[in-house]
């Protein structure tokens, strides 16, 4: 059966300083086969407005792919009845990408450094490390089931 394409809802809203911001919302099913489609959809909306193309082509795509994979695999445990909410707030100064799953959260404070010599040969443990290296700021909610990645415009 053909899957229906993902759709984003985009709304304009007034920012804190009175400027006009845009907000994009998207719900992604708990299926890793939909990750690339979701990443491309968000990237297309951001590409035109970012002067530094590499930030979207590389940093955004990899970071969002990681966050969605974590949310689907570990947050929602691939449960069909759960989804991942993506909210992107685009302002003059930055882009905030929030990815929220329906799981119980995890402790993001105690993750080993995958670049230590003993950890380099390990097949896992690089997802959050990459996100932190590729975006300007990372925040979590208290429950640990929502990550907010911030890319500042240069």
């Amino acid at each position: 059966m053909a899957l229906s394409p993902l759709r984003a809802v985009v709304a304009r809203r007034e920012g804190a300083a009175g400027e006009l911001d845009a907000e994009l919302r998207l719900r992604v099913p708990s299926d890793v086969a939909r990750v690339e489609e979701a990443v491309e959809l968000v990237a297309r909306h951001l590409e035109a407005s970012f002067v530094d193309r590499r930030t979207i082509r590389f940093n955004l795509r990899v970071a969002l792919s990681e966050a969605l994979a974590n949310a689907i695999l570990y947050g929602n445990a691939e449960a069909e009845d759960k989804g991942v909410a993506v909210r992107v707030l685009m302002s003059r100064r930055a882009v905030e990408i929030e990815v929220t799953d329906e799981g119980g959260g995890f402790d993001y404070r105690c993750l080993p450094d995958p670049t230590l010599p003993a950890n380099i040969p390990r097949p896992c443990g690089r997802g959050l490390f990459l996100i932190r290296r590729l975006v300007d700021e990372v925040r979590f909610n208290d429950a640990g089931n929502s990550i907010c990645m911030i890319l500042r415009r240069a």
């Binding site: 082509r57 590389f58 795509r61 990899v62 792919s65 990681e66 994979a69 040969p121 390990r122 097949p123 896992c124 690089r126 997802g127 490390f129 990459l130």
Partner: peptide
């Protein structure tokens, strides 16, 4: 290839071993 994510890197690491 445009990009690889951490699970792709992980597969390369485990295959290499």
């Amino acid at each position: 290839t445009g990009y690889i994510d951490s699970s792709g890197l992980g597969v390369l690491v485990s295959l290499s071993k």
